[in-house]
Design a binder for these strands. Sequence first.
RNA 1: GCCGAUGUAGCUCAAAGGUAGAGCAAUCGCCUUGUAAGUGAUAGGUUAUGGGUUCGAUUCCCAUCAUCGGCUCCA
Length: 636
Amino acid sequence: MEPREITLAPVGEGFLFNLNRKKVAGFTDNLNALLILRRIKMSEKENYEESKLFRLRHSAAHVMAQAVLEKFPEGKVAIGPPIEDGFYYDFDLPRPLTPEDLDEIEVRMREIIKNNSEFVREEVSAEEAREIFEDQPYKLELIEGLEAGEVDEHGDPVDEKPVITIYKSDEFVDLCRGPHLENTGKIHPKAVKLMNVAGAYWRGDEHNPMLQRIYGTAWLSPKDLKQYLWRLEEAKKRDHRKLGRELDLYSVSDEVGSGLVLWHPNGAMIRFLAERFWEDEHLNHGYDFVYTPHIGKAQLWKTSGHLDFYAENMYAPIEIEDQQYYLKPMNCPFHIEIYKSDIRSYRDLPMRYAEKGTVYRYERSGVMHGLMRVRGFTQDDAHHFCTPRQMPEEIDFVLDFSLNILRSFGFNEIEAYLSTRPEKAVGEPERWRDAEAALEASLKRAELPYEVDEGGGAFYGPKIDLKIKDALGREWQLSTIQFDFNNPERFDMTYIEEDGQPYRPYMVHRALMGSVERFFGILIEHYGGAFPVWLSPVQAVIIPIADRHVEYAENVAAELRSADIRIEVDDRSDRMNAKIRDAEKQKIPFMLVVGDREMAENAVDIRRRSGERLGAMAVDMFKDLVLQEVADKAAG
RNA sequence: GCCGAUGUAGCUCAAAGGUAGAGCAAUCGCCUUGUAAGUGAUAGGUUAUGGGUUCGAUUCCCAUCAUCGGCUCCA
């Protein structure tokens, strides 16, 4: 396999450039890019690998492989590791697998489990291993790697030449490091389930053959399995694509194009509210807003380096009067041009340009996913420019600012990753050192749990990434605070110091939500569609019991609307129960029932979407309640 | 882009080599309702698009597009 040839010479401006750490690591270590340095927290990973669950899943993978090979004797096996929540095994088979095949394989697995046969570990020489796996080309390739002392059977790098081991169980032998359970009988036959089949490249490299991967899940007890399946169901209910339709938040139209989001009124209201908050916070914290165009001339993208290193993600140029213009994949060059439109003094710094800039990136057709992965999206982008003296304080500021905003959206579990200088990097080493020190000091001051990813930074600068945990405990990377030592050089940015001489400013890119679209998708799933009151497109619906109450309902609505409460009257002639049901399904925070009693007392009877009954309440009191929850950004 | 699956009414799904049906939603009535579905009627579809096979295709075949599950890539 060819190592990826990636030139780490000064390439374009950093921020969202495609050169990720995997590739860089793959390059520098001259190993394939597979599975190196995955961002699993080391402690968690070690705990998992020593757990019974890990051995169980590893063992289940072997049992599955045996069942598959019995069905397809000519099949070739690749690798089959445990993964989060389960395991997989990759096969090269004569035909595509069907769901029925999976059922059969699962049935056969249970039989093998019942054989209760021991997992026997054996150390073998490379020659012996080659003999055992003579019909298994993938295994032979792995043996070669082991022999050369480069990678183990999972493609992970190894420090020294490892001992080659095989594991036998029942009728199956596998090249495997282990460990396993004592015997197949330790797997609970009712706590294993095959989930689905998917394609996967051999060793994760798209130039290699496509294999068939069977995903399975395995647990210590059927109860655990059941709970896992329940969790999957819950996640499905929260799927932003499903909720996006049900709550009429957004759509994607074939007519418009894949990966291009249409924000419906409900979704647009949520976006508007989120952005209004974002804007207020920025204005209150020393940011200046800028607006920049959607296209720019080729030369700009040449200077920035995009045309050399990001072209494959950019749309084809538009030609106007013999000039080529490109749709922007990033905002930074425009912000830099604004900076450069005048001579800047140290007295002007720090400068903070913020823009919700809509960018377009070509994404390969198979990767689009709801709001999470699209071709046109808006970054809540900002660029900070400051002097070296100001830099530590500026980092402190931007980290605090970021955390404050994330917490306002209900993300209270936040972790940070600090990525430091890779081997090949641009920028003076002192600048790197100072920047890294500032980032780390800020993390400590913010008392944020963080991990250091040594050498994991991009070539153009160190960075902090912030990850949040959503209501289901899933992690999402949202924010990034990213130094850029590259673009100031490329664009020859300067400021004038006290001594009258030009100096190079520090430049920091940062995005808090990242992509507004993706952030919205995460918000939908985090709240399961039940947005907090301050973000709900409709905060309350008034439900008149009979037609004679509609007029009163309208009066109440008008009064609440004048207090900026988003409220509707459900004046359909349906029964109250039906209206409540509809409001519940729309996840409207408050339902205000009005009938004869309420009319008589100038009151409303309040029900929360949780089902909680707050009882009859004066209209003014309800107004205060809602406004208070809006001000608190309370969930609920 | 790659592997596999899928594409039928606004939504969720049936059916079938002889031009398709249900529930919900919608529309129009009746009912005037007290905390998650009152009731009747009506309307709604070139079965994703383009080719091919066939007396006949929406059904079988091919291509394209899109979606879904993954891989690769990524905000």
